[in-house]
């Protein structure tokens, strides 16, 4: 546990000193919220006020998804600089390096969530679910983000080139975000795309987050999501830890 916390502390110190990561957390949600609410709000949702309630949960999900992308990139930078070689020759619990880094990421994700929610509130977002609903929704997105981070961790340990890791994660995350119900209702889409949006896990996440924030029951989506998170973690966490400890 000491080791995990030590690595968590390291991640936070690095985060504080790497302005680009702060940018990622703060600027991305602001830009996307402003673009979609003011630029498209009228066209897509009828009015900005009507659309903002639909958009904030979506932006929250997208921001966190994109933020998970830097997890893998940061890890592969560490590997490239040789810092991890030293950590791997220490007799510490296998996986402490990775779980420690995830604790740091969790703080980053939480910060990004606060930025999105505060901005939404400023733009007139009034969630019917109240504090409890919003908190529940944020916790759900955080859980999903951390579970997904294990996949990027494994990817970073396998590919090892920071640029390639970032490019690959973005190539997965942006289509998943845009071809979902984040920005618009799938009813207006052509049939084949609708089918994709319906099975896209991001859509399920967004639906559940919307329901929680609106104070309605999230229904089956929530169950599927929790199962998905459990699966992501159960499959990729042990693989990543094994990969990390395995002598190349």
């Amino acid at each position: 546990m000491t080791a995990t916390l030590a690595f968590g502390g390291r991640a936070l110190k690095k985060f504080r000193r790497t302005p680009i990561q702060l940018l990622d957390v703060a600027v991305h949600p602001v830009v996307f919220t402003l673009i979609f609410s003011f630029l498209f709000g009228g066209a897509v949702g009828g009015s900005i006020d009507a659309y903002i309630g639909y958009l904030v949960p979506g932006i929250l999900v997208m921001t966190l998804l994109v933020t998970t992308g830097t997890t893998g990139a940061a890890l592969s930078v560490d590997i490239a600089t040789g810092v991890y070689d030293r950590f791997r020759t220490l007799s510490i619990r296998p996986g402490a390096v990775l779980t420690g880094a995830l604790i740091g990421d969790l703080v980053r994700y939480a910060l990004a969530s606060v930025v999105v929610i505060v901005l939404g509130l400023a733009l007139g977002f009034r969630p019917a679910g109240g504090v409890a609903g919003v908190l529940g929704a944020v916790l759900l997105v955080l859980l999903f983000a951390v579970s997904l981070s294990w996949l990027w961790t494994l990817l970073a340990l396998t590919i090892k080139t920071p640029g390639a890791v970032l490019a690959l994660t973005q190539a997965v995350l942006y289509p998943l975000s845009f071809f979902s119900n984040i920005f618009t209702t799938p009813a207006t889409l052509p049939g084949w795309l609708q089918a994709f949006v319906d099975v896209n896990p991001v859509s399920h996440l967004v639906s559940a987050v919307r329901a929680l924030m609106a104070g309605t029951a999230p229904g089956a989506s929530l169950g599927w999501l929790l199962l998905g998170c459990a699966l992501l973690t159960a499959v990729f966490a042990p693989l990543a830890v094994r990969r990390f400890n395995a002598a190349g």
Partner: peptide
């Protein structure tokens, strides 16, 4: 290739290893 953490101070590098 010096495997120390560039984004930490010298002391923080040593402290991290001490804790580990």
């Amino acid at each position: 290739y010096a495997s120390v953490d560039e984004t930490l101070t010298g002391r923080e590098n040593l402290t991290l290893l001490g804790r580990l």
